[in-house]
């Protein structure tokens, strides 16, 4: 089982979900399925308007509650199919703007081990992940910072290296994501110029994720995380303007993640995570926590294998 707990830093950038999931170097065994829920809470009361760091008493603290359904199926020991589907509820503590809630995007990832080697006791694997993101409901994207998402169909690719010696490990990954144009409820809008269309070009996103720590086995580990996201293109929020889905959103976050198998109940694990945004552009300076439980079982074959 390989779920890193998952945090929504929603609010301005639900896309960063991707960089928080399936970012580990672990694989489910063939015909095993692992499913569960993660509940998340995140909030910010300062944000970057372009590079200008500010608060806004007309929204106060923007907070997000979420519950995410997730699952991972081992097609075989080297190929896993992963999905996530969150329900998100956002609100502002001040001002009059109404909150938003709803089922957000279904993300499906295919993760594959490409190459593995034991180099003098360093177990090293190279993995690749392909992902698709599909909005599941007709939610409103053009209502930031309270929108529950960007409502963009996405396609992503991620490369990852995972190295472990005894119980020390480090995983590093980098991803790129293409986002399809979205349609908004207006038929004209201003970015850095007037565009007379309801279609909005969504800039691509790249990012990296580095996590390291102690890993006894796939169900027992604790790690620190450094996560970066960089939107390629897009524009800055102007002074005192509203944010817009195609803003240039960047963020660097640090965090802590823990997974622990529950003693006595085979297959059940608990997870907890905390993240803090430390730098950004056109995003909130988010603090987030999440906790969840997953249960793993074999669908057919009685044979159980674990990588490493």
């Amino acid at each position: 089982m390989k779920w890193k707990g998952l945090i929504y830093s929603a609010l301005f950038l639900p896309i960063s979900l991707l960089s928080q999931t399936e970012s580990d170097g672990l694989f489910m065994a063939k015909n095993n399925f692992c499913g569960g829920f993660v509940a998340g809470f995140s909030q910010w009361n300062h944000y970057w308007e372009g590079n200008f760091y500010r608060s806004n008493e007309n929204i106060g603290t923007v907070s997000s509650n979420s519950i995410m359904l997730m699952g991972n199926y081992g097609i075989n020991g080297k190929t896993n199919l992963i999905f996530t589907l969150p329900y998100i509820q956002n609100q502002a503590s001040a001002g009059t703007l109404i909150g938003q809630q709803g089922l957000q995007d279904l993300n499906v990832f295919l993760k594959r081990e490409l190459y593995a080697i034991n180099f003098k006791g360093w177990l090293t694997s190279f993995n690749g992940t392909l992902g698709l993101g599909l909005p599941t409901t007709n939610y409103v994207a053009d209502y930031l910072p309270l929108s529950i998402g960007m409502k963009s169909q996405t396609a992503s690719a991620k490369m990852m290296i995972d190295v472990q010696k005894k119980q020390f490990f480090i995983t590093a990954s980098a991803f790129g994501m293409l986002r399809r144009n979205i349609e908004i409820d207006r038929d004209a809008y201003y970015t850095t110029k007037m565009i007379y269309s309801n279609s909005v070009q969504m800039p691509s996103v790249t990012g990296y994720n580095i996590r390291t720590g102690w890993r006894k086995d796939p169900d027992h580990y604790i790690e620190v995380i450094l996560d970066g996201m960089n939107t390629i293109g897009g524009f800055d929020i102007r002074r005192n303007d509203m944010p817009f889905p195609s803003n240039n959103m960047d963020a660097i976050k640090v965090g802590l993640n823990l997974k622990w198998g529950i003693p006595g109940i085979n297959g059940l694990s608990a997870m907890a995570m905390a993240m803090q945004t430390v730098a950004g552009r056109n995003v909130g300076m988010t603090q987030s926590v999440a906790a969840g439980a997953v249960y793993q079982f074999e669908i057919s074959s009685p044979k159980k294998t674990n990588k490493k």
Partner: peptide, 13 residues
């Protein structure tokens, strides 16, 4: 991915 690339266009006014 190729199809996606094609769908990521500056909309025409």
């Amino acid at each position: 991915l190729l199809i996606f690339q094609g769908c990521q266009k500056e909309p025409s006014s």
